[in-house]
Computed example of a mutant assay.
Amino acid sequence: MDTILQKHMPFDPLQNTPLPGVAPLAMSDWLIIDDAYAPQMALRRRLLANRRQDVLQVAPQALPAAQELLSLVLEQLAMREEFDVSERHVTCPDGHRVTLIWDDPMQTVGQLVQEDMCLLQKQGDEHVLSGAVLCFPAGWTLSEKFQKPLLRIHAPVSEYDENIAKRVQRLFDGVRPGRPLWRKNALWYDDPCLFAPRSEATPHLPARDPGTHRPFLRSERQSVVRLPKSQAVVFSIHTFVLRREDASSE
């Protein structure tokens, strides 16, 4: 896979944030167009063309929510001068023209913006992953999480106990349309590869001292957005990968 790196980020990923680490986000700031837009989008489009089953899943019952997500993305892009949005096409900042396919909305969204998009819909007491375009997984595999509830999705994460699960579920229940929330993470890696899936059955390697060895900082800005009609929750992930020297100081 290509080495695609940003030089800058709109936040300091290494700054300590008090728990739970969630903050309000303006809708106008939801979608980020950064200095890696063109190469990231070229990679996304190749993955969608050549490895669709690995990066895109939508349950039939999630199609209306996925179409609502596409509408929301187009509404946001129409307000940005970098995009030319028409009834049938969008011309993107890299010059690529995307045809709007409403019967395949997640594939269309995946060709427009850098964010990976996960749709979660309430079933019983938990939100379930009912659809996603996930081109840049960091250590997980979409097929293993698809149509699973939040607690099951996080099963391999030892820190994700029932107490944290309840807090996350309250966050998903509480987010309101037009008032998204966001958080960040930051991890050091040896390999800058953006498409980095890993099965739950693959053992985790022991962590090394991140302050001395690993040359790449990978940070996700994760946003939680409520769709007003379907009431589905969108968990979006914008992925940044920087060389150590371009990251903020620890």
Score class of each variant (00 low, 15 high):
residue 21 G to L: 09
residue 36 A to I: 01
residue 68 E to Y: 01
residue 79 M to T: 14
residue 132 A to D: 07
residue 227 L to E: 00
residue 225 V to N: 00
residue 125 D to N: 15
residue 104 D to Q: 13
residue 228 P to M: 09
residue 134 L to M: 12
residue 41 M to L: 15
residue 250 E to A: 13
residue 110 G to Y: 02
residue 233 V to P: 00
residue 56 L to D: 01
residue 8 H to I: 08
residue 5 L to H: 05
residue 175 V to C: 06
residue 118 C to D: 07
residue 13 P to D: 05
residue 218 R to T: 04
residue 248 S to Q: 15
residue 165 A to K: 07
residue 217 L to F: 02
residue 142 L to T: 04
residue 18 P to C: 12
residue 114 Q to F: 00
residue 129 L to H: 04
residue 107 Q to V: 06
residue 235 F to A: 11
residue 138 A to K: 05
residue 57 Q to I: 00
residue 127 H to S: 14
residue 54 D to P: 00
residue 28 S to N: 09
residue 135 C to G: 10
residue 195 F to M: 11
residue 75 E to S: 13
residue 240 F to N: 08
residue 137 P to L: 06
residue 114 Q to C: 14
residue 163 N to R: 12
residue 39 P to F: 08
residue 31 L to E: 04
residue 187 L to W: 04
residue 224 V to W: 00
residue 210 P to I: 10
residue 170 R to W: 09
residue 87 E to H: 10
residue 95 G to M: 04
residue 227 L to M: 01
residue 161 D to H: 13
residue 52 R to Y: 14
residue 26 A to R: 12
residue 31 L to K: 05
residue 242 L to R: 08
residue 72 L to V: 12
residue 215 P to F: 02
residue 10 P to T: 07
residue 12 D to S: 09
residue 196 A to F: 13
residue 126 E to Q: 15
residue 165 A to Y: 03
residue 131 G to I: 03
residue 67 Q to G: 06
residue 39 P to T: 07
residue 159 E to M: 06
residue 81 E to H: 08
residue 117 M to L: 14
residue 68 E to L: 06
residue 47 L to N: 11
residue 246 D to A: 12
residue 135 C to M: 05
residue 207 A to V: 03
residue 188 W to S: 12
residue 15 Q to R: 14
residue 139 G to W: 03
residue 145 K to L: 13
residue 148 K to I: 04
residue 247 A to Y: 03
residue 46 R to M: 10
residue 126 E to I: 00
residue 145 K to P: 01
residue 47 L to M: 13
residue 96 H to T: 13
residue 247 A to S: 15
residue 79 M to G: 11
residue 2 D to Q: 14
residue 167 R to S: 11
residue 37 Y to S: 02
residue 136 F to S: 11
residue 98 V to W: 02
residue 154 H to S: 05
residue 18 P to Q: 11
residue 38 A to Y: 04
residue 155 A to R: 15
residue 210 P to N: 07
residue 150 L to Y: 02
residue 200 E to Y: 05
residue 92 C to Y: 05
residue 131 G to Q: 02
residue 88 R to P: 02
residue 188 W to D: 08
residue 244 R to A: 10
residue 72 L to M: 07
residue 8 H to Q: 14
residue 135 C to W: 00
